[in-house]
Design a protein around this nucleic acid. Sequence first.
DNA 1: CCTTGAAACGGATGACTCATCCGTTTGTGG
DNA 2: CCACAAACGGATGAGTCATCCGTTTCAAGG
Lengths: 190, 190
Amino acid sequence: MSTPPLRKDAAQNRHRIIETARRYVDDGKSLQLNDVARTASIGVATVYRHFPTPEALLETVALPTIEKLLRRAEHSLAEDDPWTALREFLAAAIETMLTDPAVPPVFAAATDALEVTGDCKRRLATAFAELLARAHAAGVIDPGITESDMIPLMCGVAYAANIQSTLDPTERATLGLRYLDLLLTGLHRP
Amino acid sequence: MSTPPLRKDAAQNRHRIIETARRYVDDGKSLQLNDVARTASIGVATVYRHFPTPEALLETVALPTIEKLLRRAEHSLAEDDPWTALREFLAAAIETMLTDPAVPPVFAAATDALEVTGDCKRRLATAFAELLARAHAAGVIDPGITESDMIPLMCGVAYAANIQSTLDPTERATLGLRYLDLLLTGLHRP
DNA sequence: CCTTGAAACGGATGACTCATCCGTTTGTGG
DNA sequence: CCACAAACGGATGAGTCATCCGTTTCAAGG
């Protein structure tokens, strides 16, 4: 279960691969391992050894961003007003999904299938559940809404904003926040 | 610009291809033309001649469903109350997207890129624009919302419902309508 | 500094998918 | 019945994918 310490050259290669993959993701290119290998001037087998599938590589690329969101979520837990806390976190989530193209596919995938980010995603879900529970307790949100509604809905909002492929990422993020507002208006109980 | 009448055997093959593709779509399989050809016991080249790309085949599969939705839209135009009319149409759209897996990718694609359904989709957009304009005129909807917001938002709602891959299509449709309601609550001005 | 074994490397390769080309067959109007 | 255009279909070359295995590199112990 423990990770044996990585050899120096291996660590470096791994790093190069992730860097290259990050560039691919940002450019909207699909992660083809053979292709990434060639670009990074690294043997194909090496890439496959580090990342058995494109999904695993994508997860690894997305991990730092998701961890950052997790910290933001934990920060939101400190906020007093339950509605503000929830709203703040959801806005952060949307912004994250629209800013980093590596994130949406990871969020949309079933958590169980995630080798790398599964744990992080579960902790995110826990934090979110807590925020939602508080909102419910305070009666400021539609009582019929559950966590397993909210996550897909968030992905849906991000998806909607992402369809506007002509817009640049910043504009898309703004649009996403606007769409989130619409949704939240529908959910808010004053 | 006109379609020269199709030879009898050609028409039959075309029909067989579409039928097979429909089964693929319903089973959630991706449309690989070579594969469809083998399943339909038709030469690969024949399939490619009728449908140069998987997208074209998918569009053709989706066309009847989209045409049906168009008729529903025109029917909604006859409804007096602008809010009811809009709502009715949007519900029909969501239901369509969640019932027929061929539709969402077609709706999400840029209309200009659609050889087969482009025209149909444009007429749908026109009808929808009319419904939206009436709602705006009556002041029953968020004045900031435009057609180019609504279409992605609809796709987003459908996407959200579709993420629940464990549910069967009927349940997903119900869920989608619920999500639509949330969104509409956010948009409605009483 | 040298040895040695484990760890990591990388590219050649076979399996697989894709889409086109072209020789053959089939339908149809005269 | 003929002739020709229309349509057919499978063989094939281009391209992608992921594995295998012979070679190289690292680092711990002498």
